[in-house]
Nucleic acid binder design. Structure first.
Lengths: 347, 347
DNA sequence: TTGAAAGCGCTAACAC
DNA sequence: GTGTTAGCGCTTTCAA
């Protein structure tokens, strides 16, 4: 059965197709009488414009492509939420593709988005295949690389230094007097790797070895994985004084496993996570972490895209450091007897 | 600057446009010599096909629309993962739109997807505006409603009885001998409402009151919210014998708040969650829950869509109950002294 | 304010 | 195996 087209609406309304098109896109450019006729014809026929035709004819797609590595991690949900908030209101459609942490899939995603003639691409990270980089650079649309800072941005770059953040977390633990500090990670993607680099540097600066305490495994970060990894480490007879987890989920898992094994946090072991997820403040004990700005990154990326799309001049290279901050809580505060403290209102 | 088109590739390769089209879509339908010429021309020019043109010309979009209420909840990440796994391999693009739990936004999402001429729509839930239902029914593409079971499915319906699940969870608590059972929820969406209905019925059947123990608030489920809600309930002087949380995140938050307030789980209070999220088995204490089949639901929905798309006959109404299961763990097992039990390998 | 003509970039159908 | 022709459904000129 044939789909309803603009022509169908036009003949029912007794006007020309172009009038229908105008009435729908810019109602005020058409007389009241015609607009009403058109609208009722649209209703009656259940007409829905074909965006493929409209994109082809107008060469504007009003579509922005976003590439994230995964949807399992809530940080990307927060980031996407911000992107949507800005872009959808501005009349753009957002196409989200996930690369599953693979540069090959990322390249395919880029091709798919370019095939859709997206008007901008917002991509997670700064590491891409050579071909991906070339495609992005030649696409002649605004490109935003996020979550990391690049030495050589393609266009816009809004992120933070993962390495400095890893360094800061480790320095915090060192400052507490710990010398045996383990690094726990799931999927060792580029950002986790940079955090590790920061950790490694800090350990070296302190004259300490780091490598043998690493427990990583190529699986996405989760509470269950943190619990597993900590358990295995402990089973091997390793019980470090402190652990830096690449992710709060891992840290929570490690804390729960500690509890099962009657290892007290922070008395027997200190734990710091990464990202300062929503649950971290209310965990028991509350979890120290590095707070990152996912929402703000998404918001700014979207706003920069809108600006670049407005300006007809090609925007040059621009880099914005969103920073991060250390949040110290109970899990790395040896002196706090958190379970015995007064809790207001706990009557 | 002009975009590279099929014609550009064709003239560079010295063949007709249709040959390029064929070489790209079905390489084996073209002689080796021409295919090579075409491919190198594509490379040289950096040609990327315009999907809008291709969709318009072929009237096939190879696109499936998916509507979910949120990306914040990991159950939808799992579901989407399964959908992608099946559909992308089968050569389809998946467009994900989120309705933010609003039926109005859902209606807009449906219109947007129909405008894209998606070949099927997979939508979360069974409650839609009248107009949405009409649009879906008249779309003449396979429609799958998921996560709930409808009395009147539009087309395909793959879900579970949220009400029976809520009933089962409550019966479990009643079976443990509890009479004061609270119900904790964040966003009271339709599915949470149905779980509440099941809880309410079970309480009534047992001759118990339910309503005054409800602590709900229109905010998405999270560990932090669970912690807050439990805290407020406790501050009001309510300490039920057991709590049924609409979501494992809330349950975990409640458990952590219990710990802070030195209320023992399960000794002083029993807690059961919903969905059996990944962390629930490794929580300390481990969390009882209702296991739901998000991944399988997504996989089956995708497979059914592919089948319906293959069959040229319009598929009729079909309903599949994915079921659920009760998972009893420490958080509702009063007799288990979980902290003192032997843990294998905890040397 | 409205309409006619042309074309966006690709593919279906049919020829050779 | 390869090419020709026509047209998908809309919007952009340009003209009235």
């Amino acid at each position: 059965m044939r789909r309803i087209t603009l022509d169908d609406v036009a003949s029912l309304a007794g006007v020309s197709p172009i009038t229908v098109s105008r009435a729908l896109r810019n109602p005020r450019s058409v007389s009241d009488a015609l607009r009403l006729r058109v609208n009722s014809a649209v209703e009656e026929l259940g007409y829905v414009p074909n965006v493929a035709a409209s994109r082809l004819a107008s060469s504007r797609t009003h579509t922005i492509g976003v590439i994230v590595p995964t949807l399992y991690n809530v940080i990307f949900a927060e980031y996407l939420f911000a992107l949507h908030e800005v872009l959808v209101v501005a009349g753009f459609q957002v196409i989200v593709v996930n690369s599953r942490y693979s540069e090959i899939e990322e390249e395919n995603a880029i091709k798919a988005l370019l095939g859709q003639r997206v008007e901008a691409i917002i991509i997670t990270g700064i590491h891409h295949t050579a071909r991906s980089r070339q495609l992005l650079a030649q696409a002649h649309v605004p490109i935003v690389q996020t979550f990391e800072l690049s030495d050589d941005p393609i266009n816009l770059n809004i992120g933070m230094s993962q390495e400095r953040a890893g360094h800061t977390a480790t320095r915090h633990l060192l400052g507490r007097g710990f010398r045996q500090i383990a690094f726990l990670t799931g999927n060792l993607d580029h950002r986790a790797q940079s955090r590790f680099d920061g950790y490694h540097t800090a350990m070296q600066e302190a004259g300490l070895k780091s490598l043998e305490m690493i427990a990583h495994r190529p699986r996405h970060s989760s509470v269950a994985l943190g619990s597993e990894l900590f358990g295995e480490m402990h089973d091997r007879g390793d019980l470090p004084e402190a652990i830096f987890c690449t992710d709060d989920n891992l840290a929570l898992g490690a804390m729960q496993e500690c509890r099962k094994r009657r290892i007290r946090v922070p008395d027997d072991i200190s734990i710091i996570g990464f990202h300062d997820l929503e649950f971290s403040a209310c965990a028991a004990p509350s979890l120290s972490s590095i707070a990152t700005r996912r929402y703000e990154t998404g918001k700014l990326a979207a706003e920069k895209v809108l600006l670049a799309l407005d300006a007809f001049t090609k925007t040059g290279i621009e880099q914005i450091d969103m920073g991060f901050s250390l949040v110290v809580r109970e899990s790395t505060s040896r002196d706090v007897d958190f379970l015995n403290r007064d809790i207001p209102g706990s009557g």
